[in-house]
């Protein structure tokens, strides 16, 4: 640590004299931090503030990230600006998979971070980090453009801290240690990954979130607490409707007709 601080000071002193000395790390990080191209990818309300962030008043061009690209192939940064719904989620994951490394994700606003005010909606994903690794989270509903600028600067600081030898996309071995994230598919009860229900409509998600990939690490995203599955009423044929107006259990007609589950209709008959 002390050695790094000394070298930084020497470097600053030299720059004042008009002499520029750089390490490969520093030069490489400077190049990447100064030209982060975001994907023009607006989901909901936060996208309006994202546009304000790109336009004249807040002018993100000062930080080198003004070039919004419509294609994920050309983008470095995905700003998840708004509520991610279960119907949109497969597209979001697929777009992320299509981005080239190094790629970053900013989770903008309460909805993208946790579901926000719409957290309990049956079609809302409770945070995009259940399916994607997120680098920077921004609170707020919606965050002001200044907050998004701050998130961009935070991301730039994260990039400054990276070391070439430890980046996941330059890993040892034949292929880089980057992975395609599993794209969920639509199922009868909710989103499925490889045929297993991971996010039921009207229920709690069965996945654990990905941790930040800031230093090249990521979790598997496997089903973390499958015991919740037992308590989800659609899946529990023993639960009966307690009260006519309380959505606590399975109504007979849903159990018998709508979900077409064999074991329940057998039990009913």
């Amino acid at each position: 640590m002390g050695h790094m601080a000394d070298s930084d000071n020497i470097q600053l002193d030299l720059e004042k004299q008009g002499v520029f000395v750089s390490t490969v790390n520093r030069f490489y990080n400077w190049g990447r931090r100064s030209s982060i191209w975001p994907m023009s990818f607006g989901l909901a309300c936060c996208a309006i503030e994202m546009m304000a962030f790109g336009l004249s008043r807040y002018d993100v061009a000062r930080f080198g990230a003004e070039l919004f690209r419509a294609s994920p192939r050309q983008a470095d940064l995905m700003i998840v600006a708004g509520t991610v719904t279960k119907k949109m989620l497969p597209q979001v994951v697929r777009l992320y998979n299509q981005m080239a490394e190094p790629r970053y994700v900013i989770s903008m606003g309460a909805c993208a971070t946790s579901g926000g005010p719409f957290r309990d909606g049956y079609n809302v994903v409770r945070g995009v980090d259940l399916f994607l690794p997120v680098d920077v989270y921004i609170p707020g509903c919606p965050p002001r453009p200044e907050a998004l600028l701050h998130a961009l600067i935070t991301l730039q600081e994260q990039i400054d801290g990276q070391r070439l030898g430890r980046l996941r996309w330059y890993g040892k071995g034949d292929k880089p240690q980057t992975q395609d994230f599993p794209v969920p598919t639509f199922g009868a009860q909710g989103l499925e990954v490889d045929g297993a229900l991971v996010d039921p409509v009207g229920g709690l998600p069965l996945l654990g979130p990905y941790t930040s990939p800031g230093h090249g690490e990521q979790k598997s995203g496997e089903i973390e607490h499958p015991e919740i599955a037992r308590h989800f009423p659609i899946m529990d044929p023993a639960v009966e409707l307690e009260h006519a107006l309380k959505a606590r259990g399975v109504a007979p007609e849903i159990a018998a007709d709508d979900l077409k589950r064999d074991e329940v209709s057998d039990a009913a008959s």
Partner: peptide, 10 residues
């Protein structure tokens, strides 16, 4: 899902 007896958690 909008029926009053659709099961919901949250």
């Amino acid at each position: 899902p909008m029926r009053k007896d659709f099961p919901k958690q949250g």
